[in-house]
Amino acid sequence: MRRALPILVVLAVLLAAIAIVNPFFIEPAGFLSFVRRAAPLVILAAGQYLVIVAGEFDLSVGSLVTVEVVVAARLIDGDEAATWPVLALLIVLGLVVGLVNGAVTTLLRVPSFITTLGMMLVLSGAVFLWTGGAPRGALSQAFRMFGRQTGWAVLILVVVAVAAVVLMRANFGRTLIAVGDNERAAALSGVRVTRVRIIAFTLSGLSAAVAGILLGGFAGVSAQVGQGLEFQAITAVVLGGVVLGGGRGTVVAAMAGAFTLEALFTLLNLYGVSGALKFTVQGVILIAAVAAGAIRLPFLDAPKVKGDAHAVS
């Protein structure tokens, strides 16, 4: 929790700033609607965290979200009865895409940056081919409930967040971080490095499926629904102080990073800053956060005494 502190402070400041401009924000309804809006990104960030902390990337989640929504609309096509089977199928789809990413990265030794970039293009192309640019069909009322009704969205978010925290405290999570920190030492301690990494990718795929389900209801059906989400998720994770290259940072901080990013977008919106600036802001944050991490390191690596003092605090 100590490591998540800086980002929690930043988040608190931003939330306060929003509240000053828009008092409705601190009322339960206002705040929960913010949480609902942030939920897909927070869930994606949790998935992305698992991959990044193991020293990898997942660039395919944005396209995967789009695929999930487009497939859902086409298969359900307004048929309420189809809701639950299609939901199950979407979850499986997410898991399979993640599994493929993981298997290609670890077994074929393709760097994950390339694997998931390739997957992003493959999925984007498939959506375009299948829809011809304009998605057809419609989601059912039951499906849209998850993203629309604040209660559902918040509940799903809480479940995912708790699951992520528990997972990171369990054997799997601890060995995952060890793999990201020192793969060789982990392997020589009996960790199944390949398996652990594949699971991380698979869970990232799952998070994209869940985020897609929420976004479908919230934002509706379009071929652009997931666009740029992979970069938002990575920015959120990095903003949470999770180090690219692996082995450092907590999932709580990564999720807090997602909330912070969403809060920042909200604030910019309130101040009437153009939505077009979203990407620019993200880019600046991404570079600044990584640079800040790099600058901090020498101090931490410095004399042992200082390290001890740091641990006491």
Binding site: N171, R174, T175, I177, A178, D181, N182, A185, A186, L188, S189, G190, V191, R192, G247, R248
Partner: peptide
């Protein structure tokens, strides 16, 4: 031998967890 950025406890438990 070690995952240097992890805690003493996490390193001590690495084999057990693996």
């Amino acid at each position: 031998g070690l995952a240097l950025r992890q805690s003493v406890r996490d390193n001590a438990l690495l084999v057990t967890r693996a």
